[in-house]
């Protein structure tokens, strides 16, 4: 049988976050969002509702964008979790980060981590998305500042940069 948890009490597990194994113990009612922010100090992941209604808390789990506010942390053992903190390569920003910064994809910045992580999953799977496809993929990330247009433009630009980088490598 897998993990079980009882009331009250804590579970103790190892999470793999941004490629690093992290041991953590927490009360089993905690979601991945709470554990990342409160127990691992990774506050780059934001929250706007904690009910699955805004997308601010999106992180990648095994490569797919999920809502950390509705993911039980206890169910994340052994899965690869990626957050905004792990995106840059040392001092070098990811093309999505560059593009969001340069093209106005981020204003207040609050939706930005969730939006960028969602866009990363898109580009990992579809290197040449149309603007319609970008909107479809980003339709679960509310933003109150940008009106989305510059977010879409940022993702388009980053897609171009990623493709260019691939070609250079090849």
């Amino acid at each position: 049988m897998g993990i079980t948890a009882t009331v009250p009490g804590k579970v103790h597990i190892t999470l793999k976050v941004n490629g690093e194994e992290m041991e953590v113990s927490f009360a089993p009612y905690k979601t991945l969002l709470e554990v990342l922010r409160e127990d691992l100090g990774l506050t780059g992941t934001k929250h706007g509702c904690e009910l699955g209604e805004c997308g601010a808390c999106a992180v990648l789990v095994d490569g797919a964008p999920l809502l950390s506010c509705l993911t039980l942390a206890i169910e994340c053992e052994g899965r690869a979790i990626e957050t905004i903190e792990g995106l840059a390569n040392g001092p070098e920003l990811h093309p999505l980060q560059e593009a969001f910064a340069d093209l106005g994809g981020s204003q207040c910045g609050y939706c930005t981590p969730g939006a960028i992580m969602t866009a990363k999953a898109l580009l990992d799977n579809e290197p040449e998305p149309s603007s319609q496809r970008i909107k479809e993929a980003m339709a679960g990330n509310l933003c109150r500042c940008t009106g989305y247009q510059q977010i879409v433009e940022s993702v388009e630009k980053a897609a171009g940069c990623c493709r260019h980088a691939e070609r250079v490598k090849a």
Partner: peptide, 13 residues
């Protein structure tokens, strides 16, 4: 932050 209530948890295979 909205938080879950306490619960017991099982993960059968």
């Amino acid at each position: 932050m909205m938080r879950l209530p306490w619960f017991k948890y099982h993960a059968p295979r």
